[in-house]
Nucleic acid binder design. Structure first.
Lengths: 243, 243
DNA sequence: CGCCAACTTGATAACATTCAATGTAGGTGG
DNA sequence: CCACCTACATTGAATGTTATCAAGTTGGCG
């Protein structure tokens, strides 16, 4: 629910963009390979352990970050500790866009995670030379806005069962794109993270999993592997078509 | 809660960008006045009555729209009629950005509203010549994403009273920017719209207004004018600092 | 003046939360 | 290798905030 303990930061290194296996998933993929040095020369990489922070809300927005491997949660806190996770970043996703010079949310790895660090200033300079990069960024941010609107519908109007169903299908869909198993789905996050993402409590999430299991909409293999036997029925539930 | 009846569409006309009084509020403001014709020549304007639609979810995303005057609600529906309003557009705001070729939400005027219509294709052509426009768009969409994240926190984790307080302060802040009265605040939308925006029911919104009034956090002058006597106390409530 | 839509208020019910206890799995040290 | 510890997850019982159902009230407009 709240910030987690941090292990000491790892040394900065630098991957080779040319050999980057997730480039086609990231915004860098908009760049013709011949111009890859534009990114390579301003970029550094870093390994993070579970719980380590990429971004602290309120800090000066000096960089944007690409997730290469692992999983990062974006979240906001209320003064009394209530937490809302606004998204999970998978390989190829990025964070760190800021409007007013400071980050408006926090970001923390939930498992061992490798990130690319791109200094904002330098990246903006690249945009001037390579507008296709900025165009891709606009497309991605627009898409994220659309996803955010879906999530508002979920948080404002869906029942617990609908939320959990939508969450599972979503993760399935995104995982597929990056080559994860479609069935069973792997959940890298805890029940607490799922609860904070869906605007529920841990207990309600747990009970909902149990109920879905009882109704044969899902099967659990351990707490982090979910089989979906009847995809259509889960989709109906998630979209609110089920009475 | 649901789509409203539509009166017949008004004739298309064209305002003069050069004399546009809200240009500095809109993304067009990024354009040096000497290039205003780039927009002027591709743009048309239209008057809408209350309830008329700007966008129908699922339609082909052929244009983007600027609000010149009035107020537009953006919303999404579930099959059974549940509605989530994702935002209210005030003069200077725009809508119609789409990722995959079709609109992912609906948009309807909630009072007489004037809009500018910019064909997507033609606008994209302008972007190539005038990258400052696209850059501004990225800044605006990034800001909207940040606002959407705030709204997720509200919908997922705030109480009814906190939601209403946050809503009033928000509208106050946005209204100020476009020259509306700061105190009392004018609410152009119905209780039903407020409910669908805050993920509550009409009854809960109404009761919450009554409760805030009883606690002297607001005063009502009719249903659409709200006085805020002690701004700080309302801010405390809205941000979750109040116990 | 009367109608209708929007709003308010009241009583009851439901869904999710809270508080509390129990269960399970992975990791560590004896 | 097993016992123990801790973090995470599940389950149960009671509570509470908000939703639902049902009247009323207000206010603007023809």
């Amino acid at each position: 629910m709240s910030p987690e303990k941090c292990s000491p930061a790892r040394a900065l290194t630098s991957r080779e963009c040319r050999r980057c296996e997730i480039r086609h998933l990231a915004f860098c993929g908009a760049l013709d390979p011949q111009y890859l040095d534009e990114i390579q020369t301003i970029m550094q990489t870093k390994m993070l352990g579970a719980g380590e922070h990429v971004i602290n809300e309120g800090d000066e927005a000096s960089s944007v970050f690409n997730v290469v491997s692992g999983c990062v949660k974006l979240y906001k806190l209320l003064p009394d500790g209530r937490c809302q996770i606004t998204g999970f970043l998978l390989p190829g996703d990025f964070c760190g866009i800021a409007t007013d010079g400071t980050y408006s949310y926090s970001a923390a790895a939930i498992e061992p995670t490798e990130i690319c660090i791109l200094p904002r200033r330098k990246l903006e300079a690249v945009f001037v030379r390579r507008p296709e990069l900025e165009r891709r960024l606009l497309a991605i941010v627009s898409h994220e806005l659309s996803v955010a609107q879906d999530q508002m519908l979920l948080l404002g109007r869906k029942t617990a069962a609908e939320r959990v169903a939508a969450f599972l299908l979503n993760l399935c869909h995104r995982g597929k794109r990056i080559g994860w198993s479609e069935n069973p789905i792997h959940l890298p996050m805890t029940r607490a993270d799922i609860a904070d993402y869906l605007g529920l409590t841990i207990e309600t999430v747990s009970r909902t999993f149990t109920a879905l299991k009882k109704n044969k909409l899902i099967q659990l293999q351990g707490t982090g592997e979910v089989m979906i036997p009847k995809r259509e029925r889960l989709i109906e539930l998630a979209t609110g078509e089920a009475a």
